[in-house]
Computed example of a mutant assay.
Amino acid sequence: MHPAFSVIFLTTLIGAGQGLFLALVTGQLYAIARFLPTQVDQFYAIGSLVALILLIVGLLASFFHLGHPERAWRAATKWRTSWLAREVIVLPIVMALVFAYGAVHWLGWTMPLFQVGELLKVDATLLLGLMGTIASFALFVCTAMVYGGVRFIQEWHTPLTVANFLFLGAASGFMLAAAYSAYIGNPLVTFFGTWAVILTLAGLASRAAHLIRNAKLKHRSSVQTAIGIRHTAIAQKAQGATGGSFNTREFFHGQSQSTIEMMRRIFLIVVFPIPIVLIGAAYITASPTLPILAFIIQYFGLIAERWSFFAEAKHPQNLYYQSVA
């Protein structure tokens, strides 16, 4: 498939935004349980603002992939059958909950609404955080299933696609939370950094399993099935036209196999070991810049990972449109 950078930025930016929001809520829950020191409301409010900006920029990036952006709202009407429609519906819900979570913290509306047991005091921020968490997980699933639900692209049609989007998005979000904490001198760098490493390792296991699975795939379609001729020796000499077309541009990346393999090696190094090493070094040196560098490097690696995700997918139509006369 052709890796459209608008979609690459959409999926990586909203993934980091969702992950950052999940990190903030996780930190609040740990503070409620008294495993972490309680943070001021401004910490959660500014963090939510950053998460919201990432979600908005990711949404805006997606419009560059549309032929008629003014008709984008129509996608939501097919929510019964389309994962894209569900994503279009869930994304604004996540954005609204992230905004509300940050706004309530900023305004200091943290008086308990009711109490559960003797210790748990439930306020509006906790309720909004839990609802936002559920919505964020739903958005991860919807975004991943836009691709994982395509049965005829076998490289995508696997539960590992959902796992990859979830783990990698959450890892980048927790890495950003560690960078945010380091930037403002907050002591939660170690907490967020540790979770970022755990999620990065989970993403490595999931993505490696995905690559191994795809390397062993036996495609159901062939040149014979593409043209309806069962002869065993068929060699395509032309695609039926003397130049490119929508089919050759939109469904094929046009890069060599060596380029795809190079991008795979790049993201396997840049997304996983380098950020983990930088976070570990930040623990030892107490450096405020290494967590920030770890997030930046990992995010650029995720761009390469998402490019590879699209490029490694073999659309069946390319069995026919694979050469130009």
Results as ranks from 00 to 15, higher is better:
L176W: 03
V98W: 04
T200S: 14
A226T: 07
L130P: 03
Y180P: 02
A178T: 04
M95V: 05
V197T: 14
R213T: 12
L217S: 10
G129V: 04
L176S: 11
I134S: 08
A138L: 11
L204F: 15
A196L: 01
T158E: 10
T190G: 13
A215N: 14
I227Q: 06
V94D: 05
H105E: 09
Y101T: 14
T225H: 02
G173M: 03
V162P: 00
H105R: 00
P159L: 07
A163I: 07
F99L: 14
A100I: 05
E155I: 00
I229P: 00
V94S: 09
V98I: 13
P112N: 12
T143A: 13
Q154M: 15
G193Y: 01
I93S: 06
F165P: 10
V162W: 00
E155T: 03
W156P: 08
G203F: 07
A205K: 04
L97E: 10
G203Y: 06
L166K: 01
L160T: 13
V162T: 12
A163G: 09
A170Y: 00
L201Q: 06
I198F: 06
A96S: 10
I93R: 01
F174D: 02
M145G: 00
T161V: 09
V162K: 09
T190D: 04
G173E: 04
G129L: 12
T190I: 08
K121E: 15
F167H: 13
G129I: 00
A144D: 07
V162E: 11
S222K: 05
L166V: 13
E155N: 03
F167D: 11
P187E: 14
T161D: 06
L176A: 09
M111F: 02
A144R: 02
E155K: 05
N164Y: 06
W156C: 10
F140Y: 14
L217Y: 04
S181K: 07
A178R: 01
A208Y: 14
S172Q: 11
L176T: 12
A178K: 02
A208Q: 03
A178H: 04
G193K: 08
F114D: 14
V94H: 13
S172L: 11
I212N: 04
P187M: 00
